[in-house]
Amino acid sequence: MKSIQVILPFHLMNLAGIGLTDDLKVEVDEPVCLNAVVDALERDWPPLRGTIRNPYKSTRRPLVRFFACGADISHNPLTEALPEPIQSGEEPLIVIGAIAGG
């Protein structure tokens, strides 16, 4: 298990009942990939189930984006290992809702 820092969008923090100023850390099974992080988030905060990945397709929701170490990794396979600074807890995995709509 590795302790991973995650930053979630406002609406998902609210939905999960996580304080907006809280540092969010989650214990993730190895190998640490996007799927493993989302699995851990859904395990610890069940209201998040299906909000980041489409539960019927197990794919990233189209308007959810993932950033790691300054790079957009939204199109990487969900099973690809996350960069080392994320794995070591040095950098957060950032989940954001795409800027779209009104």
Partner: peptide, 8 residues
Amino acid sequence: SSGWFGQI
């Protein structure tokens, strides 16, 4: 529901 995060 939301277009970003689906159905709750």
